[in-house]
Amino acid sequence: MLFARPLFYVFVAAPLLLASCSNNDKSDDALASGTLEVRLTDAPGDFRAVILDVRQIEIHLKEEGNPDGWQLLPFQAQPINVLEYVNGRSALLVSSDFEPGQLKEIRLILGPDSYVTGRDGQRYDLKTPSGQSSGVKLKLSKKDLYQQSSNYQLLLDFDVAKSIVERGNWKPGNDKKERYLLKPVIRVVAQDIRGGLRGTVTPAAALPQVLAIRSSITPADTFSTSADVAGAFQLGALPSGTYRVEFFPSATAPANQGSYKQVTRTGIIVTNDQLTDIGSTPLQ
Rank of each mutant, 00 (worst) to 15 (best):
L103V: 13
P67Y: 02
L145S: 14
K104A: 07
S95T: 12
I59F: 04
K143V: 12
G236N: 11
I109Q: 06
N81R: 08
D113P: 01
Y146C: 11
I80N: 00
P100S: 11
R39E: 11
K104L: 01
E105C: 03
A206P: 09
E84S: 13
L138F: 03
G121M: 05
Q191M: 08
H60I: 04
A227Q: 07
P254M: 07
A237R: 14
N169I: 04
Q191L: 05
R179F: 03
L36M: 13
S96A: 11
T222L: 09
K142I: 09
L83G: 00
T222N: 04
Q147A: 10
R123C: 01
V82G: 00
S215Y: 05
D46N: 15
G88V: 03
L72C: 07
T281W: 01
A251N: 13
K177C: 07
T264R: 13
G88Y: 03
D25L: 08
I269K: 12
A220I: 01
Q234M: 14
L140P: 02
E246R: 14
K261M: 07
R198Y: 03
G121K: 03
R214N: 13
N174K: 10
P79S: 10
I51Q: 12
R48A: 11
G111T: 07
V245Q: 01
R198E: 12
A220D: 10
G69Q: 05
P208E: 02
L61P: 00
E246G: 02
T252Y: 03
K62L: 13
Y152N: 08
